[in-house]
Simulated scan of single mutants.
Amino acid sequence: MTARNAGLDLLKWLAILSMIADHLRYLWPEAEWLFVIGRLAFPWFCLAIAANVARSPAGALFTPFNGRYLGWLVLFSVLSEWPYRWLDNGSATLNVMPTLTLGLLVAWGVHHPTRLGGVLALIAVIVSTLAEDTLMYGLPGVLLPAALVLAMARGSGWWMLPGFLAMAANLTNSWLMAHVLEPFVWLVLATAWASVPFGTGLLRLKGLPSVWPVGRWGYGFYPVHLAAIKTVSLLA
């Protein structure tokens, strides 16, 4: 059995905390700084996916672990939609889980260079292109886990690619795109860019004390925390 990576668990915890901070804006809309902190969450979840993909043997696509991994993402893509829609009924996109699910398929295609792996990745890219307007973070967000897998494998200048994709994913937000010259948007994009080297630095830390593992409960935490924040907003 592969030993748990304390840096990966720490990364997941920080991704969860930054996601919560982002969604607390539904309780405190005037706290714009929470939006900036929230730009760390999606790239770090993508990095967690990339780290899980990269540590599996290349070519070993059909494994029980991969089957469970995809199954949990698909299941909570469905289960999370109602709480997400309840919290933000004005959103033009789906919850973030479908983006992460499609991103996993593309990352598999990069890491497992088999015919079926390539077909799955191609299908995911085609679906993402056709459904770009309804996917949170759009096609750049779907491609981000695969870019991180490439960067882990090849290093050097490849780390520029996920940084640009993290920025591009945020620019699928129509408000950010319309105000791209404003300093606040620059801060948002800089935070998205910085999430990649900071996150990979966490993965490389050695000698960390054990961190409480983020297990399968993490999937359920996403819809539960959305519903909890909505409930608090109604009671406030």
Rank of each mutant, 00 (worst) to 15 (best):
T200D: 14
V188N: 08
W72A: 07
M136K: 09
P223N: 03
G157F: 14
I20E: 00
S77D: 00
V211Y: 06
Y222C: 05
V125F: 03
A124W: 00
A168G: 12
R39P: 08
L10I: 04
Y84E: 04
V36W: 14
Y219K: 07
R216Q: 14
V232Q: 04
P57C: 03
A3N: 11
T93P: 01
A58H: 04
I37K: 05
G215A: 13
W28R: 11
G109T: 01
L104D: 02
L165N: 01
I229S: 00
L144I: 10
P140Q: 09
L100A: 08
V196L: 14
A166R: 05
R4S: 13
K230C: 06
Y222G: 03
A194L: 14
G103E: 01
P64I: 08
I49N: 04
A50N: 11
L104N: 03
P183E: 05
A192M: 07
W108C: 00
G103Q: 02
P213K: 08
W44Y: 12
F62Q: 06
P197W: 12
S195W: 03
L150C: 07
S156I: 02
L139R: 09
L34W: 14
P162S: 12
S174V: 04
G71H: 03
W28V: 07
G7H: 01
G67A: 06
S210F: 08
L161W: 11
Y26F: 15
A192Q: 09
W33H: 09
V185Q: 00
E182M: 05
G118Y: 02
A228V: 12
W175P: 00
L234W: 13
L143W: 09
N66S: 07
S18Y: 02
A236N: 14
L73R: 05
L161S: 09
A31N: 15
F65V: 10
M97Y: 08
L40K: 07
L144W: 11
T63R: 12
G103Y: 00
F35P: 02
P197E: 12
F45I: 06
V142S: 01
P162V: 09
N5L: 12
A169T: 10
Y222P: 07
A21M: 06
Y137W: 13
D22C: 08
L226K: 06
Y219I: 06
Y69D: 03
L75H: 01
M1L: 13
L148K: 05
N89R: 15
T172R: 13
L34Y: 10
A107R: 05
P113I: 06
P83C: 04
S156C: 07
P145V: 01
L208H: 08
P140F: 11
T200M: 15
L202Q: 03
